[in-house]
Simulated scan of single mutants.
Amino acid sequence: MVKIERFEVEQWMDTYETTPGVLNLAETCAASISVNDLVDLCEDENAPGPLTLSTKMTYGAILGSHNLRKRVASLFDKASTSPISEQSVLITQGAIAANFLAFYSLVGPGDHVICVYPTYQQLYTVPGSLGAEVSLWKLKEEDNYIPDVKELEALVKTNTKLIVINNPNNPTGSTTPKSVLEEIVAFAKARGIIILSDEVYSPLYHSLPPGQDAPPSILALGYDKTIATGSMSKAFALAGLRLGWVASRDSAIIEAIASARDYTAISVSQLDDQVATYALSQSVLPSLLKRNTALASTNLELLSAFVERYSSVCSWVKPTAGTTALIQFRKKGVPVDDADFALDLLGKTKVLFVPGSLCFGQGKDFKGCVRMGYACGTEVLQEGLKQLEGYVEEHLL
């Protein structure tokens, strides 16, 4: 029997995010919008609507509709001299399915996988459950949680099949810049190693330092054995669609994943496909991303002001992208027990965080840290920070 580890962050969210009156600062999606909101964002009053209600509800296009795959492919064009085609894209039930299918198709017993850490638990637990050996590529606070490519020499093995990265990073909100991505690609290409880049928080690069450009997708850097995954959930505020994708220039990789996908899903919902296609149209996409980028940027500054005000008891590496931050809380200079802290905070204030050591540190790393999602509605964040301020004043200072 396959050994399945507890998916701690999802178990935590499942248990606590429906708490009555919760101020959900654990949510990682840009504040969700409705289909009506999406229509309001459309800049072309003559554009067709998001749904064609006369369409017969068959299985639809098995790999995803032509228009949707074409529009997803166009998301990877930035900084690429060779745009990818729709044949390089496969539509899935969210990025979580895209990642799972990539692992299920490509790794197994006898393989070795290198994965950045901290990151979404799926990215290292699933390869391990499939029998692969997994080495964690530990990101360091002093390096702003940017991977140190020199460390790959000590991690790589003759049987290394896959290097897994996450850009922007969950939970830290760090950005791996183009120069580092190019180093990773050069390292992998010299050894024939596949790279899987979870890009589910791209393109929310909202707070980069002056002069630093947003990095391109891993697919734009001239190496065919690369895979990018993403979804409509985080950067596009449409988690309810449950629609994502996996893309690669290597046709053999896409064919293998498509073959594995036959065992898990025939196709995605035609309704989801239609709404996602509409959202990624040039009539809607620019205003949708402008809305979500502005929301994340505005809210991050509110959170930054809080961290600065209470720097005696909390600290972080300020995020540059995405929707999440990793913040450490201390009492009398000692990191709090983050799980107890999160539960006590929830009970006293209704503010929900995700404990870092439990959900991202395998119970041993990131003591005292919590992951916070700050791209919720600004009014929710403001009220949550107000409640958190009262808690800090009473219990940590």
Rank of each mutant, 00 (worst) to 15 (best):
H112A: 07
P177K: 07
C115L: 05
S105P: 00
I114N: 04
L106N: 11
E183R: 13
A154T: 06
T172I: 02
V185R: 11
G173T: 01
S129Q: 15
V156H: 12
E182T: 14
L101F: 07
L136R: 13
E182V: 15
H112P: 04
L130S: 08
D143W: 09
A102R: 10
F100I: 14
P171T: 08
T175H: 02
S174M: 09
A186H: 03
V149C: 15
V156S: 02
G110L: 10
V107Y: 05
I96G: 02
G131W: 04
P127I: 06
P118D: 03
G110I: 10
N166G: 01
E142N: 09
G173C: 04
N170E: 08
K189G: 14
E151D: 12
Q122G: 07
V185N: 12
K150N: 13
L155Y: 09
P168V: 04
K189S: 15
K161V: 04
K157M: 09
G108C: 06
S174D: 11
I146K: 05
N170G: 00
V180P: 04
P147H: 11
Y120H: 14
L130M: 14
A188F: 06
D111L: 03
W137V: 01
G131T: 07
L139K: 06
E133I: 01
P118R: 04
Y104M: 09
L162D: 11
S174Y: 10
T160S: 02
K189Q: 15
A190L: 14
P118V: 07
V126I: 12
Y145M: 10
A186D: 13
C115K: 01
F103I: 04
L130I: 12
A102F: 13
Y104T: 08
L139V: 07
G128T: 07
D111V: 00
V116C: 11
N144R: 05
A98F: 02
F187W: 11
T119G: 03
F187Q: 14
D111I: 05
A154W: 04
K189R: 15
V116A: 08
L123H: 03
E142A: 12
P109A: 04
V134C: 02
V134N: 00
K138N: 07
Y124L: 00
T119V: 12
A154E: 08
N167P: 05
K150G: 00
Q121I: 06
I114G: 05
P147R: 08
E183T: 04
S174P: 09
Y120R: 13
Q122D: 03
A188C: 15
L123M: 12
S174G: 01
A132K: 05
I146A: 11
N169P: 01
D148T: 06
K157A: 14
E182G: 08
P118M: 01
K150S: 12
Y120M: 10
K138W: 02
D111Y: 06
A186G: 08
T172V: 14
T176M: 15
K150C: 00
A97M: 15
G128P: 00
L123D: 08
E142F: 12
S105N: 06
D111R: 02
